Amino acid sequence: MSEHGYVEDDFARDTDYIEDRITADGRDGWPVEADRYRLVVSRACPWANRAIIVRRLLGLEDVLGMGVCGPTHDERSWTFDLDLDGRDPVLGIERLQDAFLARFPDYPKGITVPAIVDVPTGKVVTNDFPQMTLDLSLEWTAHHRDGAPSLYPEALREEIDEVNAWVYTDVNNGVYRCGFAGRQASYERAYDRLFGALDRLEERLTDRRYLVGDTITEADVRLFTTLVRFDPVYHGHFKANRNKLVEMPALWGYARDLFQTRGFGDTVDFEHIKRHYYVVHSDINPTRIVPKGPDLAGWLTPHGREALGGRPFGDGTPPPAPRKDERVPSEHRAA
Results as ranks from 00 to 15, higher is better:
residue 153 P to C: 02
residue 184 Q to F: 12
residue 183 R to K: 14
residue 134 L to I: 06
residue 159 E to N: 09
residue 159 E to W: 09
residue 161 D to E: 09
residue 178 C to P: 04
residue 137 S to N: 08
residue 157 R to S: 07
residue 177 R to A: 15
residue 170 D to N: 13
residue 169 T to D: 15
residue 132 M to F: 09
residue 180 F to K: 07
residue 148 A to W: 14
residue 164 N to P: 08
residue 139 E to H: 00
residue 152 Y to T: 11
residue 132 M to K: 08
residue 168 Y to T: 04
residue 136 L to E: 04
residue 166 W to Y: 00
residue 143 H to S: 12
residue 146 D to T: 14
residue 158 E to W: 10
residue 146 D to A: 14
residue 153 P to N: 02
residue 160 I to R: 01
residue 182 G to E: 01
residue 157 R to L: 06
residue 169 T to Q: 15
residue 147 G to W: 04
residue 170 D to E: 11
residue 173 N to S: 13
residue 149 P to Y: 08
residue 177 R to I: 10
residue 174 G to F: 03
residue 176 Y to S: 07
residue 175 V to S: 13
residue 174 G to A: 04
residue 144 H to S: 11
residue 180 F to S: 13
residue 172 N to W: 12
residue 174 G to L: 03
residue 143 H to N: 12
residue 143 H to G: 10
residue 141 T to C: 07
residue 138 L to N: 01
residue 179 G to E: 10
residue 178 C to I: 07
residue 138 L to F: 00
residue 164 N to E: 05
residue 180 F to G: 07
residue 131 Q to N: 13
residue 182 G to C: 02
residue 142 A to C: 02
residue 175 V to Q: 13
residue 153 P to E: 00
residue 132 M to L: 14
residue 137 S to M: 09
residue 160 I to A: 01
residue 159 E to A: 13
residue 149 P to V: 04
residue 184 Q to S: 10
residue 159 E to L: 12
residue 141 T to N: 05
residue 161 D to Y: 11
residue 149 P to N: 03
residue 147 G to T: 02
residue 154 E to N: 07
residue 131 Q to C: 05
residue 153 P to M: 00
residue 151 L to D: 03
residue 161 D to P: 06
residue 157 R to D: 04
residue 157 R to C: 07
residue 180 F to V: 10
residue 172 N to Y: 13
residue 132 M to V: 09
residue 147 G to M: 05
residue 156 L to R: 10
residue 171 V to E: 02
residue 157 R to N: 03
residue 164 N to I: 03
residue 137 S to C: 14
residue 140 W to G: 00
residue 180 F to T: 09
residue 164 N to R: 04
residue 183 R to P: 04
residue 158 E to Q: 15
residue 144 H to Y: 13
residue 178 C to D: 02
residue 162 E to M: 04
residue 180 F to M: 09
residue 174 G to E: 01
residue 142 A to L: 06
residue 163 V to Y: 14
residue 150 S to G: 15
residue 175 V to K: 14
residue 158 E to M: 09
residue 134 L to W: 06
residue 180 F to R: 12
residue 165 A to S: 05
residue 158 E to R: 14
residue 140 W to Q: 00
residue 164 N to Y: 01
residue 131 Q to D: 11
residue 156 L to A: 12
residue 161 D to R: 13
residue 175 V to A: 15
residue 136 L to D: 03
residue 181 A to Q: 07
residue 176 Y to K: 05
residue 143 H to W: 11
residue 133 T to C: 04
residue 131 Q to Y: 05
residue 154 E to K: 04
residue 162 E to S: 10
residue 176 Y to T: 05
residue 135 D to F: 02
residue 145 R to V: 08
residue 181 A to S: 12
residue 167 V to D: 12
residue 133 T to K: 01
residue 144 H to W: 12
residue 183 R to M: 10
residue 161 D to Q: 10
residue 138 L to A: 07
residue 177 R to W: 10
residue 165 A to L: 03
residue 146 D to L: 13
residue 144 H to V: 14
